[in-house]
Write a protein that binds this DNA or RNA. Structure first.
Lengths: 195, 195
DNA sequence: GTCTATAAACAGATAGAC
DNA sequence: GTCTATCTGTTTATAGAC
């Protein structure tokens, strides 16, 4: 239940965002959304065409917020390595998983071109953004010139997404951290590791 | 529908394995399982206590098969780096995702101590197995002695699990390959990359 | 062992009152 | 705009015939 100062349509979107994060698309029923939003059937079907339409609005917003969160760190101060490290080490509610990445395991999301699009675009944007930072690091001599920036960026995004899997499997956020530290060690400028 | 030479209980388990892989636990109904297995309600509730019990049998078998598949490559011939590369590059039906890892995004699996256990044990076994190979590689001088074997292994498993996420998001198996190649480049013995 | 019948709750959506 | 019926099909399970 959200505060009364917020519109019903807004409460529906936010409730859907939460439930998609917690239970995914197939695990989320309109009834559950309505209960959480404190709204009736009529409101939902007045503002949205149905469950897929509401989910699309929720997914788009979540995607936008994820990009903003990432950009806040990746566009911040520091060397390329430091910014990537800051991104990897930033505080996360690890056991909740990634609100965007988790949707890729949802059969009805992957099947729908419309619902999958914002997921794809977001992860693609993140990979590209990281690739540009890796290239920047290569120009500064921070990363080996032999690395393929795009592939390295894919590894970084994959490590994060897979880190959530390991953490949720074990119920331990530390499993995420282990994967991240392993990656940072592999990425570390060759000059640094030695005493 | 499976061949008549196989027991009903067997067909139920195999149908459940397929559906859990395709649609996850919350997305799989007993009805869908029964249809695929060509069995009636009575058969399922005769052989299993209910959906969770049948799912447990299916998950345990899938977990065991995944370990066997991994061990076939990891315990094969070659240097540690070569065996890890063989594991990462082995043929996979990438867009289907990992039948074990995907379950971590299932709210009802993660909530159930019983259903989560085989998932956790399998990924933990894989991480440990890879860690021992990394240590072996360090002894041979193939990997830097500064690496933490456990963390490096976590990165390897995470890259694979996250690779599935990237591939499914984009609908392109190539996204998985990019992450893997990026990781292999980072892992590559320092002597190799130069001409 | 396997089948069909039955059932209470839920999923997803529509209709129409207010 | 929001609400409460109403509705069809599904989910998950039990009962009992064969």
């Amino acid at each position: 239940m959200y505060s009364r100062g917020v519109s019903t349509s807004e409460r529906l979107i936010e409730s859907t965002r939460e439930l998609l994060w917690e239970r995914g698309y197939v695990g989320t029923s309109p009834k559950a959304i309505l209960e959480r939003a404190g709204a009736g059937q009529g409101s939902m079907y007045h503002h949205f065409k149905g469950k897929p339409d509401l989910a699309l609005a929720a997914i788009r917003r979540t995607a936008e917020m994820m990009r903003a969160t990432a950009e806040a760190v990746l566009g911040g101060p520091g060397t390329p390595y430091e910014r990537i490290a800051a991104y990897l080490l930033r505080e996360r509610d690890v056991l909740r998983g990634c609100p965007v990445g988790r949707l890729t395991m949802d059969p009805d999301v992957i099947t729908s071109e419309e619902l999958r699009a914002p997921v794809d675009e977001t992860l693609d944007w993140l990979r590209e953004r990281l690739a540009s930072i890796v290239r920047e690091g290569q120009e500064r001599g921070e990363f080996g010139p032999g690395l393929d920036a795009g592939e390295t960026a894919a590894t970084i995004v994959a490590t994060v997404q897979g880190g959530y899997v390991l953490a949720r499997a074990s119920g331990q956020p530390a499993a995420f951290d282990a994967g991240v530290r392993g990656l940072l060690a592999l990425l570390a400028p060759p000059a640094t590791p030695t005493a």
